[in-house]
């Protein structure tokens, strides 16, 4: 699918819906599409110090992406602070594409204090959903969480990303059967659907399999699972 990005792209969602994975993958795609532009990513996850964009600093830096993480991320003095650089991310004269990885649920409050400085015309806020996360497995519940996040962030979501996945165990059928869910979430939220995702690591033959099915024209994007592996 064709992709274009606004200047500021905020990724939000329920815990474990795959926000970090989406933020990192979209930043990598943006840099690949617009190599001449400055692409930034900021880790605004003030909630949880375990799995976060800061884990992927090397991968991102190697790809030429500017990474902003809390100064003490992943250390024993990891405390809830917001990283610097938001100024340049929302500065209108700056020709760049930025991605912000918010914390789950009301962790979105971290961006709320800047909401009046953000030009919403030049900003997308992507709401990530995953059918296999029990608390948002019903589209109406997913929309309830979205409203909570919007309140905390004091910003409105503009697009929905269907990131339905069971991690390493995801099969083609799991993604295929989540398409209606993704569409329903977007419809209930009154927002356009940006894309459905599939993980290239786990379903490498996805494109081949989706061809000729009733969903062949749906907007799918292939992403990589960049979650750190312990074993």
């Amino acid at each position: 699918m064709d992709m274009s990005f606004k200047k500021l792209n905020i990724i939000c969602g329920h815990y474990g819906s795959g926000k970090t994975n989406i933020a990192v993958n979209l930043a990598l795609k943006a840099k690949a599409l617009f190599p001449h532009k400055t692409v930034r990513i900021a880790d605004y996850d003030i909630v949880n110090p375990y799995f976060r964009a800061a884990d992927n600093k090397k991968l991102l830096t190697d790809a030429g992406i500017v990474v902003s993480v809390p100064q003490f991320a992943n250390s024993n003095v990891d405390i809830p602070v917001v990283p610097h650089m938001l100024g340049s991310m929302i500065e209108d004269s700056d020709d760049s594409i930025s991605f912000v990885d918010l914390g789950g649920d009301d962790g979105a409050v971290a961006i709320g204090m800047f909401s009046d400085k953000i030009n919403q015309d030049n900003c997308d806020m992507f709401y990530v959903v995953n059918k296999y996360r029990p608390l948002i497995s019903a589209p109406e519940d997913a929309v309830w969480f979205m409203r909570e996040i919007e309140n905390a962030a004091r910003l409105k979501c503009t697009m929905v990303i269907n990131n339905s996945s069971l991690g390493e165990e995801t099969a083609f059928e799991d993604i295929f059967s989540s398409v209606e869910y993704g569409k329903k979430c977007a419809e209930n939220a009154g927002l356009p659907l940006f894309a459905h995702t599939y993980c290239e690591n786990y379903v490498p033959d996805f494109e081949e399999k989706i061809r000729g099915t009733k969903y062949s024209r749906e907007p799918f994007i292939g992403i990589r699972d960049i979650t750190k592996k312990l074993f």
Binding site: Y15, N130, R133
Partner: peptide, 11 residues
């Protein structure tokens, strides 16, 4: 299609 859900250990 599986009956599984994706969860954090704590959840």
């Amino acid at each position: 299609m599986s009956n599984k859900v994706l969860m954090k250990g704590n959840e």
